[in-house]
Design a protein around this nucleic acid. Structure first.
Lengths: 154, 154
DNA sequence: GTTGAAAGGATGGACCT
DNA sequence: AGGTCCATCCTTTCAAC
């Protein structure tokens, strides 16, 4: 599954993770390489799926999404039907930015972005209506200490 | 703090959140608008900080980062010195992709990406060494159900 | 808001090291 | 394999309308 990367590959990825708008020229210059090899590596890494996409990152506060909740879910339900409904709901709701199935005490964690606490309550009510009963803890984020899309390149 | 957006702004953002590599031409065509107004809006939204950046999104599995942990931290320490050290550590470590200060029972949550469980243990040991004592629960993610950088545009 | 023109960047080929 | 040069096409950027 993993794609082997050399040092130049990692340097290219590191730059593109910070700024995907860099021109080929700038990347080549920063790495003291020349355009062709840099371009070929970028193309290959795109084809291999190492680079999944290039996206714009928005500031949530600037678009009125000032509230972020983490939802910790413990459930006794583990049958296929329940799970399918849960997955479908989570994937369909744009407020849910991240969802993971966890090992251990907590079964699922959701990260949810909404305009305010009232909007979260609306979301929450409709979630528990759609996928029946939960044991849920919702934690309001008071401060986003760190958020990065840049993965560490080992 | 929030920037007022109209319908065209939101449509542009929605496209750029999915694919920042779209050309101005394509965006204008998709929205049946013409290039200049689209371009002016993009520029303004960049200047206003609504669009923070454009970045490449990598596939963690393809670069050997197969393991994701959520770290839930309860701490009795709340003095300024401890906090500063904690923030500095969290921000400096590239494995920590997200960190939030929470209201309620849990004080902090971290999302950490590493190659494997052993690497997480190394990270964990060095974290608790650097910032003294914690009450910590680490939960391994068995499955990433959803991950998106696209914010809902209300 | 529209058109279009000038400048700059992306893509890919030919050829060399 | 990487490097250089080049030709073509596509985008961005901005001025004039």
């Amino acid at each position: 599954m993993a794609v082997p990367l050399d040092d130049l590959d990692r340097k290219i990825l590191s730059l593109l993770q910070q700024d995907a708008g860099l021109s080929l020229d700038e990347i080549a210059r920063k790495l003291s390489a020349s355009k062709t090899p840099v371009w070929n590596r970028i193309r290959k890494m795109r084809e291999a799926g190492v680079i999944k996409s290039e996206v714009a990152i928005l500031d949530p506060d600037k678009i009125g999404l000032e509230t972020c909740f983490f939802v910790l879910i413990r459930t006794s339900e583990h049958d296929a039907e329940w799970l399918e409904r849960f997955l479908k709901t989570v994937r369909a709701r744009p407020e849910v930015l991240e969802a993971h199935r966890l090992a251990g005490d907590i079964d699922y964690i959701l990260k949810v972005r909404v305009p305010n606490a009232r909007a979260f309550d609306t979301f929450y009510q409709s979630l528990i209506r759609e996928v029946s009963i939960f044991n849920v803890t919702s934690s309001l984020s008071m401060e986003e200490i760190k958020y990065t899309t840049a993965l560490p390149l080992p």
